[in-house]
Design a protein around this nucleic acid. Structure first.
Lengths: 198, 198
DNA sequence: CCCTGTACTTACCAAATGGTAAGTAAAATA
DNA sequence: TATTTTACTTACCATTTGGTAAGTACAGGG
């Protein structure tokens, strides 16, 4: 049944996000399901191949999410803000994906094959184009820098949330969560020199 | 000789930053020096204790760096900008520290003892105070959100640099590097509603 | 009803891991 | 000079790791 594969991929995504590639054993993944690790190996061949499949699913979700956003905007600045708020929401919703991609970014230096970054390239190019339009600035390095700053503002926050919760306490943490989206809008809008969305 | 200890800590910092806690074996660390892993165990007792010591050194450097910055500023907005540019420079210079802290952030959910976050708390409090003054806004959640966005903009960039270099090519990557500090200044200054520093 | 493939399982296994035990040689201390 | 301590080393070791081999049970097709 192909459903078992799916369940393995889901469990693996959670495990790799939580403990990283080396911190996760395939036996560990299998134990969270009613299967042995050999069932896993039967379906995926090796730990690396399972990981690759997990990564492929994540990049699919990432691109699917990007494609939908920004349709309704009436101008480039508005579209820019809408897209990044959409990225924030998606990153929060799929926080496992966000954590895993952050780990991948850290490990990438070592296992840096270009194969792994193609989807990121597309993603970044799309955003950089939006930034160029919104900034009205032809300089690609500046657009890219802005994009990266906002991606950082989003992903770093999402990844830090468990730590922040324990550090700040439930109340302050809730306030921060509530404020973050609007504060991101303010940051974007002021950088573009326009008024932030609602 | 206490110098051996120091060399172990340095080598461990590099290794943990590069491959993470689980991706690094103590034998691996020792091999990069003319010692056996038992020499390492002799000095530190266990892998965990070595890691704790590495982390302690990093937080020392972090706080030392923060203390110096922002002295010369003539107003709260200027000070805010100066401090974050200083953090950018320090994070770039000590990129191993940055990478390792990012990993720690990701792992922290699991090995979350409050002991590990005390230094981050002090660090964040200091910055949030600066943000409150610079924003002229009493709302602590908004100040904290801004601080976190900027820390994200900085750390995510630093951590991504190896990937970005391979993704963008040497030329574009160089342009991005050159633009990043000024772009960070622009982001901060526009958010505060003032002109960016030089 | 046989045959082939699929979805698993139990048995193994070699390598690597963190760590202990028991030394040795030299330096510090008495 | 005798003794203790420090800074290591070589020998081990139990556990965990990713992975292979060789099955078993069953479903579908000829």
């Amino acid at each position: 049944m192909t459903d078992t594969r799916e369940r393995f991929i889901e469990a693996a995504t959670r495990a790799f996000a939580e403990r990283g590639f080396y911190g996760t054993s395939i036996a560990n993944i299998a134990e969270s399901l009613p299967f042995t690790k050999q069932a896993l190996l039967h379906h995926f061949g090796s730990k690396e191949k399972l990981y690759a499949e997990v990564l492929a699913r994540i990049s699919e979700r990432l691109m699917a999410n990007l494609k939908d956003a920004g349709e309704s905007a009436s101008n480039s600045g508005e579209r820019f803000e809408i897209v990044f708020v959409a990225i924030l929401k998606a990153s929060l919703e799929h926080s496992d994906d966000t954590r895993l991609l952050m780990r991948e970014l850290l490990d990438n230096k070592r296992r840096a094959e270009s194969a792994r970054t193609w989807y990121l390239t597309t993603f970044l190019d799309t955003l950089t184009d939006l930034a160029r339009d919104a900034l009205g600035d032809g300089e690609p390095a500046r657009s890219l820098a802005l994009v990266y700053q906002l991606l950082g503002a989003i992903n770093y926050f999402v990844v830090s949330r468990p730590t922040l919760e324990q550090m700040l306490g439930t109340r302050t943490f809730a306030d921060l969560n509530a404020a973050y989206e609007q504060e991101l809008r303010s940051l974007i809008a002021s950088r573009l020199g326009v008024a932030p969305g609602h």
